[in-house]
């Protein structure tokens, strides 16, 4: 995983609650056995007027001009602003892969679904929880201000608006340090090999039926 750096990025507003992972990346694209290339099919059913399948040339497809990601003023957005319970539904990690592959560094919402939140941190995508009223205000500001950017500082856990207003967000210390250091979590866990083996032995004695 890459180290997560502070950044400033254009914000695109997706004004919906309960955006599910089927909408973020529809199932036909889950047939890919690769980890990359999902960005072009992010929000596929909302983003294009024709039906998409894996392997289609997106240059030949019909974008939906009404969908917010297709509007010229939001091109190159790095931050997705959205509503409550973002990422509900299936556990597909393809959802954060697609968001990241599209170019998003961070998602801001009043709440996230548990598995999505977890997955996003695993791949180095920052999910930021801000209160409903702050998110509401940001929606207004984005709509009113073309080129609306937010600065994200993970070390200080701050999001700063163009007018200089800063909002603090909470994040688990472990998730934060993993993002900042870009660590390989498997490698970290494997530092505890002896502990895992010791646990396993004890477990085997207590519940031998769990082992063959």
């Amino acid at each position: 995983m890459e180290k997560f750096c502070n950044f400033e990025g254009l914000v695109v507003p997706l004004d919906r609650a309960n955006v599910d992972t089927d909408a973020i990346i529809p199932k036909q694209f889950l047939k890919s056995i690769n980890r990359s290339g999902f960005g072009q099919n992010l929000f596929d059913e909302w983003r294009y007027l024709d039906h998409g399948e894996l392997g289609m040339d997106v240059a030949k497809r019909k974008p939906n001009p009404d969908f917010v990601l297709n509007q010229a003023r939001y091109r190159g957005a790095k931050i997705l602003l959205t509503r409550t319970n973002f990422g509900c539904g299936s556990s597909r990690e393809h959802a954060p892969w697609a968001l990241q592959d599209y170019g998003f560094f961070a998602i801001i919402a009043p709440s996230f679904a548990d598995i999505f939140l977890n997955n996003s941190f695993k791949v180095g995508l920052l999910s930021i929880v801000l209160s409903e009223s702050i998110v509401d205000r940001m929606f207004c500001e984005v709509n009113e201000t073309e080129g609306y950017c937010l600065a994200v500082n993970l070390e200080d856990q701050m999001v700063t608006t163009p007018s200089g207003k800063s909002y603090r967000f909470d994040i688990d210390s472990l998730r934060k340090s993993n993002l900042l250091d870009g660590l390989d979590e498997i490698g970290l866990t494997l530092q505890h090999v002896e502990k895992i083996k010791a646990f396993e032995e004890k477990h085997r004695v207590e519940q031998p039926w769990l082992f063959k």
Binding site: H94, L190, I196
Partner: peptide
Amino acid sequence: GIGTSEVEHVLATQCLSIKKA
């Protein structure tokens, strides 16, 4: 349920780092 990174994590370590709900 877990994501693919965690699938790999469990395959490799038999463990997962989890926050208590």
